[in-house]
Amino acid sequence: MTNYQTPDDLKAIPAFAALAPVEANAFLAFSHAVEREDGLIPPKYRELISLAVALTTQCAYCLDVHTVQAAKAGATREEVAEAALIAAAVRAGGTLGHALLAQRLFEQHRLRARDERAS
């Protein structure tokens, strides 16, 4: 399927937001945290953080928006690459963390099953 995701979809946001204005306004107000210029974290770093999150959540539209905004905020290609690789490392770390949880849950299940068979 070609053009499954396209930047033109972003143009539909106003019409989409009009379908559920209360929820849309709450979401848009929350998303403006990225755009703040009076926060302690400068705009360039806000966009690099947003870009890293977009990469880990695999949101193509977020990736589009925050890549452009990071460039406008003065981020370099090297900073974008570094943010991407940091995001990849953290995502891999999350996988390891969940693997440890899976091992513990597996062992707990195995022990419960053994105890149930013994009783």
Rank of each mutant, 00 (worst) to 15 (best):
A88P: 01
A12V: 05
Q58V: 07
V80D: 07
Y61M: 10
Y61H: 11
Y45M: 07
T76D: 00
R117S: 10
A17E: 00
R104E: 10
Q108H: 14
A17L: 02
T56Y: 00
A87R: 06
S119Q: 15
E37H: 14
L48M: 05
E79Q: 09
V34F: 08
S50H: 01
L105D: 13
G39A: 08
F106T: 13
D64G: 06
A87L: 02
A83T: 01
E47T: 01
A70P: 01
A12C: 08
E107P: 09
G74K: 02
V65S: 03
I49W: 02
H98W: 14
A70F: 00
G97T: 02
F16I: 13
R117F: 12
A83Q: 04
G94N: 09
T95G: 14
T95Y: 12
A99P: 07
L96Q: 04
Y45S: 04
A26P: 00
R36M: 04
K11W: 06
S31A: 15
C62P: 02
H109A: 11
G39Y: 06
A20N: 15
Y4W: 09
E47K: 01
A102F: 10
E107G: 09
L63Q: 03
G94D: 06
L48C: 02
A29V: 15
E35T: 13
Y4A: 11
A118G: 03
A71H: 10
D8E: 12
I49A: 02
A12M: 07
Q58R: 10
L85Q: 14
D8G: 08
L85I: 13
A89F: 13
R114S: 12
F16W: 13
A102E: 08
K11F: 10
A17W: 00
L40S: 12
A118N: 09
I86K: 09
T56P: 02
A24I: 02
A92N: 14
A88W: 00
T6A: 14
H98K: 15
A113D: 07
S31I: 14
L101A: 11
H109D: 11
R36E: 04
S31W: 14
V34W: 04
A87C: 04
P42R: 15
A24M: 01
D8T: 08
N25S: 08
R117V: 11
G94R: 07
V68S: 07
L100I: 15
N25L: 08
L96C: 09
A52I: 00
A54V: 01
L63N: 05
P7T: 00
T56L: 03
G39Q: 04
L101W: 15
A75Y: 00
E107K: 11
D9A: 14
P7W: 00
P43L: 04
I49G: 01
L111G: 03
R91T: 12
